[in-house]
């Protein structure tokens, strides 16, 4: 007998196509250095490549694993597959998905949410690719002048991250200002104590702290007008037993 899937047919198919495209992306990605190697007719020493590779892998491979675990529940299947192929997730694709969800307000955990996430990330990937391509082909002679520190626009392009995440935070502050205090205070304190911590390591810490803080506030009635609700995790623990 065929085992019933936990996913809707649309999400099930998304996983199928996502896996196919991930494998194709690996082939495209690896073919870049392979073609360069054959075109230039050179064979770099494996030891030289490995020496550089370990330095990068030690920082970025654990982050890749953490990113998949954290971003998948936030973005759903289609958007996650797409994001990991087109890159710039935390600083572009995820904010786009959050913004689109704030506008459309789809029902959580449904195909609606999956559709909105996918539309946002796909649009962002296309626009980003086109902007970079147009910039490289048309603007490369003048771009350094636009983004250089001394230019009028220089300060603006140095501040994309606070502008982007300030706008996102504002959207949440209207409805959930109490939830924001703990994670922002914690993030600031961690950055003060460990200034070299990357956002890749900081994100999971802040997300966990934020969820724990929200759970404690919820259980103590701070988010439900002073009425203490039943611990929502209590049921889960009993069910598991």
């Amino acid at each position: 007998m065929k085992k019933e899937s936990q996913f809707t047919p649309f999400v099930e198919k998304t996983h199928f196509w996502g896996s196919i495209f991930s494998v194709l992306a690996i082939i495209v990605l690896v073919s870049v250095p392979v073609s360069i190697m054959f075109y230039l007719n050179v064979r770099p020493e494996i030891s030289d490549v490995l020496k550089g590779f370990w330095g990068v892998a030690l920082i970025f491979w654990p982050t890749a694993l953490i990113e998949i675990c954290f971003y998948t529940p936030m973005m759903g299947a289609g958007a996650t597959y797409l994001s990991f192929v087109s890159g710039n997730i935390a600083n572009l694709k995820l904010p786009c998905a959050l913004n689109a969800k704030n506008i459309v307000k789809p029902k959580k955990g449904t195909d609606e949410e999956e559709v909105v996430n996918t539309i946002a990330v796909a649009t962002s990937a296309i626009v980003c690719t086109v902007v970079i391509a147009a910039g490289v082909l048309l603007l490369s002679p003048i771009l350094p002048k636009i983004t250089a520190e001394g230019s009028v626009f220089g300060p603006a392009f140095n501040q994309v991250i606070p502008a982007l995440f300030g706008a996102l935070l504002g959207g949440y502050l209207v409805q959930y200002w109490k939830l924001s205090i703990l994670p922002i205070a914690a993030a600031t304190l961690i950055v003060i104590l460990a200034p070299t911590i990357g956002t890749g390591a900081l994100i999971p810490i802040c997300v966990i702290l934020s969820i724990v803080g929200a759970l404690l506030m919820y259980n103590n009635g701070l988010l439900t007008g002073g009425v203490k609700p039943e611990n929502p995790l209590k049921g889960l623990v009993k069910k598991d037993k």
């Binding site: 936030m74 935390a90 300030g166 996102l168 935070l169 949440y172 993030a187 950055v191 956002t199 759970l215």
Partner: peptide, 21 residues
């Protein structure tokens, strides 16, 4: 609330960096 807390946690990492990074 948990969904909002997850997103706020993520945003906080960047806000913290913008405040003290």
């Amino acid at each position: 609330i948990i969904t909002a807390a997850t997103f706020i946690g993520l945003i906080s990492a960047f806000v913290g960096t913008s405040l003290a990074g």
